[in-house]
Design a binder for these strands. Structure first.
Lengths: 329, 329
DNA sequence: GTGAAAGCGCTAACAC
DNA sequence: GTGTTAGCGCTTTCAC
């Protein structure tokens, strides 16, 4: 196999303890010895075997991040924030669950078998009770999606308030027939966003009307179908609030096929501010989450938890922002 | 700490060796003993510590995949293919380098310190010579981007031929003034695609004209700038071949601002077939890479290499496909 | 079919 | 300031 600490010790004429001290910048070693050891390390191309180190120290300095998918660019900023918060003490491993509970649990084995010290879940299928149980024995956190009943460190925006703001934007401009496109999933953010939609309407004395609500999946083609449905109504909506940018894209794409003028005849607002929303024609008005900050925060707090006896299981809420573009000016 | 194999052995009244045999489904253990041990394992909620196992076996069953970024959805299918090829024997860890050589080397430490058994690089900054050196001591592979001088297992499409096909598509339709938008990076695919562009023109007796070539970065705003430049020419191009879909998006976005009709007045072809290219208005004609198959292939071949004495360092080339959409019919 | 024991590479407590 | 040594949790060889 490869060169070990023993080989280095022998070649440098010192004990393995001394080599270990040099590796860990332990103070109690003379400059000359350190220099000599380092020289041997370089000469031999020695790299410490972390399996030995980790076993001994009972920690790996690795954090697992489970993404629902890499299909969406929503997570990009979050990941950058996470990596910046972790560096240089921890490494972030990304893995994707494709939103399957099975896959999530399989990935969490890395937590159970000590391959990683902690895990962050971005949109999990695991229920609150199970999360609480996991949180007793392991270091976990949620990001982007809260989970009902989970008393676990969580970082999100206030989805209800964000949706309220988006829909209020339409209302303030005089729109009254406002549709909603949402998803039929267990994702809590969808429910919260619908609640914000409902509250905004109520604030203007408008009752939620199920015929203006289209419930579907996440795909952009669902947005296309939604638009067809809305336009088939006797009184089509004047504005559509979508709980994701991808759905908004579908709406606009279908509108372009059907000759409906987006921004004038029909206004559209998305959610997430993925890079696509700026690039699309027209640009898509949307709600931005502070992704980088969310990622940085969740890792920072998680690391704190890992080095404390008493865990902080708070739900941290960061500020959202409405980004106005061509689809709803 | 947590429950160990020793605890299980004691509770089950057997030796640790027997517990280990049960864990590894070793044949030489009686059914009764196995059942008893498994019961204790479940009761105690025991999960083997992989640090111990991995140290002992000198392998982790983890593979590191270094992505340039998670900003782009190009990699999504590739990753799915990789995971399917690895499952259930290996886990795939994703990590992003943001195309920094420093970060790549830092991530490769996981290879040196035995945190992972192998690494796959999707677009690396590391030069061929260094890759060859790494390939001597470690298990590595390239995917998507070949590297000049690297005699390392590599899976790509034939970028030169793909670009040739795309540009030939324009030529066959009678277009003669065909522009190219490419990137000034070390990415080999860009050079190969430019070579394909040049060869296609030459096949029609057209000499490459630098005024029809715009060299920039990867961002979609570069595509916007490129279009402005091309339209400022005395004889603007009739078609534009972009080495990425994102650049094509920029071109089309700017065209919509400037009132240039895409698909008729100007045709545009991208590269990669990211999901956006289907969703855009108009849909973007582009070159598709067989992402899933590429990911599956590179992991399959890499695993073969890891269990052989003689490494297979071949360059595997998979088939590309031209996808025709509204931006160039 | 089962157990005893060595040892993977490393760190850290203890001795000097 | 440095060396000796135990031991982290596991697998595996060798006895029996």
């Amino acid at each position: 196999m490869s060169v070990t600490i023993k080989d280095v010790a022998k070649a440098a004429g010192v004990s393995v303890a001394t080599v270990s001290r040099v590796l860990n910048n332990s103070s109690a070693v003379s400059d000359e010895t350190a220099a000599a050891v380092n020289e041997v390390i370089n000469e031999m191309g020695y790299s410490p075997n972390f399996l030995g180190r980790n076993l001994r120290k009972c920690e790996t300095n690795n954090i697992l991040v489970i993404l629902p998918s890499t299909e969406h660019t929503v997570y990009s900023n979050i990941i950058n924030g996470m990596q910046d918060a972790a560096y240089p003490f921890y490494d972030i491993f990304l893995s994707t669950s494709n939103s399957y509970l099975d896959t999530e649990m399989r990935l969490l084995n890395m937590l159970f078998n000590r391959t990683v010290d902690a895990a962050v879940l971005l949109g999990t299928q695991i229920d609150g009770e199970k999360l609480n149980e996991l949180n007793k024995s392991y270091n976990i956190a949620l990001c982007c999606e809260r989970r009902e009943g989970a008393n676990v460190l969580t970082v999100t925006i206030n989805d209800e308030a964000a949706a309220f703001d988006a829909v209020s934007f339409f209302l303030k401009k005089g729109k009254r027939k406002i549709a909603l496109i949402t998803t039929v999933t267990s994702a809590h953010s969808s429910h919260d966003r619908e609640a914000g939609y409902t509250r905004a309407l109520a604030a203007y004395g408008i009752e939620k009307d199920e015929k203006y609500i289209y419930r579907c999946s996440y795909d952009y083609t669902d947005g296309c179908e939604a638009l067809k449905y809305f336009m088939s109504l006797p009184e089509p909506p004047e504005a559509v609030f979508c709980i994701s940018d991808l759905l908004a894209v579908g709406v606009i794409k279908q509108a372009s096929r059907d000759g409906i003028a987006i921004g004038s005849q029909l206004e559209v607002c998305g959610f997430d501010n993925i890079s696509l929303s700026e690039m699309y024609i027209p640009g898509i008005t949307t709600v931005a989450q502070p992704g980088y900050e969310m990622g940085k925060t969740v890792i920072t707090k998680l690391l704190e938890n890992m080095h404390k006896t008493e865990k902080n299981n708070e739900h941290i809420i960061l500020d959202h922002e409405l980004i106005i573009r061509g689809s709803a000016k």
